[in-house]
Amino acid sequence: MSRAEGQKTRSIVYCHCAYAKVIDPEVKQKVLEGLCASEVAFEAVPDLCEMSARKDPAIARLSATSDLEIAACFPRAVRWLFHAAQHPLPEKVTIHNMREETADEIVARLTGASREQEQELSS
């Protein structure tokens, strides 16, 4: 699989949960750090809750993106936040829970594919 083909298969969204301290700051920071240090394309949003309540156009934009991978909190909460903003997520979405999973696990899943591709390219 070429690098371009691999990265085209999914879109990554990171939620910073900026307006509450419910996610361990260290986990949040490590996930963002991992994404920033990688070569993956991604979108970082300040707070999905706030965006849902305000019907931020970005919610519509994100829900229209196929093969999403979201790093946020509990999948049930994320799904119904999008629904509350009147833009339900498509079925095929992977949600990583920064409240329960470790930063290393999440970063590995989010950037793993791209690392493999980089290795393929360099070999």
Partner: peptide, 20 residues
Amino acid sequence: LEGGYGVTRPRPGGRVSPED
């Protein structure tokens, strides 16, 4: 992000949400 702004980081061959 702390200031309340989302950031899109495009990369060659990567995918981000479409423009609106």
